[in-house]
Deep mutational scan, measured.
Amino acid sequence: NMVHPNVICDGCNGPVVGTRYKCSVCPDYDLCSVCEGKGLHRGHTKLAFPSP
C-alpha cells in the first residue's frame, strides 16, 4: 500500500496508507481506510482514491 503524501487522516491524525477517503462536502477532510471502516464522518459522501 502506498502512503498519500501530505495527507493526514482527520479521524486518527495518522498517515493515509492505501485508499484515501476525501469528503466531497468539506474542503479539507480526509480519512484512512480504518477510520472510514469505523463509520467516521458518515453524514457526507466521500470520494475514494486508491493511490496518490
Rank of each mutant, 00 (worst) to 15 (best):
H41T: 03
V3A: 08
V17N: 14
V3N: 14
S33Y: 07
V17W: 07
G18I: 02
F49T: 14
Y21T: 03
Y21E: 01
L40Y: 08
V25I: 10
G37C: 08
V25D: 10
S24E: 15
T45W: 04
A48Q: 12
Y21N: 03
V3G: 09
G39T: 04
V25E: 06
L31I: 07
P52K: 05
P15R: 13
M2I: 11
K38T: 06
V34C: 11
P52M: 02
N6M: 09
C32G: 00
G11R: 05
V34P: 12
G18W: 04
K22V: 06
N6A: 07
K22M: 06
L47G: 09
L40H: 08
H4R: 09
C9H: 00
C26V: 01
C9K: 02
G43N: 13
S33A: 13
V7L: 09
C35L: 01
M2W: 00
L40C: 09
K46Y: 07
K22Q: 11
G11Y: 10
D28N: 15
S33H: 11
V17A: 08
H41C: 09
D10V: 14
M2N: 03
G43F: 09
V3I: 11
D30A: 12
C9N: 00
G14H: 12
S24N: 10
D28T: 12
E36Y: 09
G37S: 11
G14I: 07
L40D: 07
C35P: 01
N6Q: 14
K46A: 07
P15L: 09
S51R: 06
N1V: 04
E36R: 04
H41P: 01
G14D: 08
I8W: 08
C12S: 01
C35N: 01
C26P: 00
R20C: 11
P5H: 04
Y21M: 04
P52V: 07
H4L: 12
V17P: 11
G37K: 14
P27N: 11
V25C: 05
F49R: 09
M2R: 05
K38R: 07
P50S: 10
E36L: 06
A48W: 05
L40G: 06
C9A: 01
G43S: 11
K46P: 05
L40A: 06
Y21L: 05
R20P: 06
K22P: 02
D30K: 14
H41G: 04
N1S: 06
R42K: 12
K38N: 11
S24W: 03
A48D: 13
D28Y: 06
S33T: 12
R20Q: 08
S33E: 12
S33L: 09
V7C: 10
C32E: 00
S24Q: 15
V3C: 10
K22G: 05
H41Y: 00
R42L: 11
F49Y: 10
H4S: 14
D28P: 01
P5S: 05
A48T: 12
P52T: 08
P15M: 09
G14V: 12
P52S: 09
P5T: 02
M2D: 03
G11L: 08
N1Y: 03
H41K: 03
H44G: 02
S51H: 15
